[in-house]
Design a protein around this nucleic acid. Structure first.
Lengths: 325, 325
DNA sequence: GCGCGTTACCTACGCGTGTTAGTACGTTAA
DNA sequence: TTAACGTACTAACACGCGTAGGTAACGCGC
């Protein structure tokens, strides 16, 4: 077991560089409007690097009244690789502004979000689900200066995914759709939003609402759902996500059937194994690259006081066409 | 957009309760060895609750020299649901000790771990991969008081997964094994450790080392690997993880072959779609529930100074027998 | 010599806590 | 009467940093 090393403070750097602590602070924070000799600046930077100086975050945020921590709250559901890509993109974009992203699984047993926000002294909080009003107030009281989404319309945005699935199937001639809902309770809210998109698209196309069936990730369960859909002449399935879609494909295979001839299946999220399914799965997903970047910009705009300048345009889902539709 | 609320400090609580700030601190931290009247205690608690007082984490950790934040570093790889279960378990166990877990995706582009550790002022850092010595030193310098794994034998533990895979195949009579390595660069280190376990198991069983081939998650790539293995009379494949294993299954299917008749395939991690593969995938995984709880205990032991009392017994991998072997 | 402006830095305060060393007020013991 | 001791608090310092305000040195014009 390696022993803890002593903490390096800005006084240590100041002493090593032969200047005052204030000068160290000016140099390291690149304070504008102050004149520091190139030579002094160099000495400070060299000393800081040599000592591997890292400002004490707590002291800094206490003094400056703001931290560089951004908290991402992830709902209590099995994390898919899509979220992971989103997180990576977001973290990268924030890092470019000197901000650090940490995530927190808002599980049922964990601490309430405002507590976590206070614990890490986050200056911004990003969520997936919209927060209710009380939570937002508590987050502000816990020290957050920016909260995203504030209370805007992301539910509608989530519905877009389902709408894109349905539109795709309808455009390929399907007139009777099914919806494969997940059994996992944690998915409930998100599944209902995606379903709403499907239902809306059906209504606009003038066809019946989708036949909704719940399936677990067991082949037997999916096979049973396939039987039900067949009985009701359903020809195209929108699945809650790719895993559910792959379950449906497995259910088809179990009956000696296959997509898209017997039943077209479209998933959501584009997980890595989607392309490895038999047949390779058609799916929809957001441009997470863009979504992450946009969230990062919104945070930065909020922190610098221009929060009204950036509107969160709902991300546009894209269809990844493969062979299951 | 709701407007930020003013921060409540312990002075506010003290004023509201008609006592000094010090008394508030004593009451809220339940300081032992001090006598506080029941009545005073009640007044303080009531005032704190009424004002929704939350101690400023930065100020507290500055003054006390410790924070209640535990940082979990997750390697740069698509997060599987297994990790998510592990994180949930860990967060719950830590919350019971008043500690807050936040996670950080150690992506290639993100900030170096010590920076993040310093940013959130974490008092403990938990990692998956073993940290190298320099990183550990930097983490201590960044303010961490406990680092897990310290530098112990988790490489061996990680290797256990590969060993379990190989042992399983060998026990079923396979004498010539292959290893399916991932193409993704972020997986490199972890893949090599798992491969080492396979190689060790082969050596102990007195058979040739595995035929290592790299494959992407494209069917064509996997099919090519399958051809190579067939040419070298390989009968059983240990895949780096389930996704790679599913790619191998898809490669087999592409040639009109199937597991386990033509080639046995075993994955790792037990992702949700593993049971949905054709055929359902045999795989190995850790008991993450137990692993999370154990890490939490190690952190607490470390923070309270009894770090030598808790030995991290390497988690024991379990084989999930399905139909691909 | 004096006033003024600029450059290059330093002194000193405050952020909101935890915590040590006290203080004021009893009660008891010698 | 005074010392000793326990109770129930409070005053004041320290943590490491950002930053407002100051100051010494120097140049320049008159």
């Amino acid at each position: 077991m390696t022993r803890p090393a002593k903490r390096i403070t800005s006084s240590d750097v100041a002493r090593a560089a032969g200047v005052s602590r204030a000068t160290v602070s000016f140099v390291l924070n690149d304070r504008p409007g102050l004149s520091i000799t190139q030579e002094t600046r160099r000495r400070v930077l060299e000393a800081a690097q040599r000592l591997d100086y890292r400002p004490h975050a707590s002291a800094r945020s206490l003094a400056a009244g703001r931290s560089d921590v951004v908290l991402l709250s992830i709902p209590d559901l099995p994390i898919g690789s899509g979220i992971s890509r989103f997180v990576e993109e977001l973290a990268t974009a924030l890092a470019a502004y000197g901000l650090t992203l940490v995530t927190h699984l808002a599980g049922a047993h964990g601490r309430p979000l405002p507590d976590v926000c206070a614990s890490v002294d986050a200056s911004a909080v990003i969520g997936f689900d919209p927060f209710d009003h009380d939570t937002i107030q508590a987050l502000y009281r816990a020290g957050a200066r920016v909260v995203i989404p504030p209370d805007a319309d992301p539910p509608a945005a989530t519905g877009h995914l389902g709408r894109a699935q349905a539109d795709h199937l309808i455009s390929r001639g399907h007139r009777r759709l099914g919806y494969a809902a997940p059994a996992h309770a944690g998915y409930r809210a998100m599944a209902e939003e995606r379903l709403r998109g499907v239902t809306d698209a059906c209504a606009e196309a003038g066809i019946d609402p989708p036949v909704v069936l719940t399936t677990t990730l067991e082949i037997a369960s999916a096979a049973q759902a396939v039987t039900h859909w067949a009985e009701r002449s359903v020809t195209g399935i929108c699945a809650f996500n790719d895993e559910t879609a792959i379950a449906v494909l497995a259910g088809l295979y179990h009956h000696g059937l296959s997509a898209p001839a017997d039943l077209a299946v479209i998933g959501a999220d584009d997980i890595p194994t989607a392309r490895l399914a038999t047949p390779p799965l058609t799916t929809v997903c957001y441009d997470l690259h863009q979504a992450g970047r946009q969230r990062a910009e919104a945070v930065v705009a909020g922190l610098t006081g221009h929060q009204d300048d950036v509107a969160l345009t709902p991300a546009i889902p894209q269809v990844v066409q493969r062979s299951s539709t």
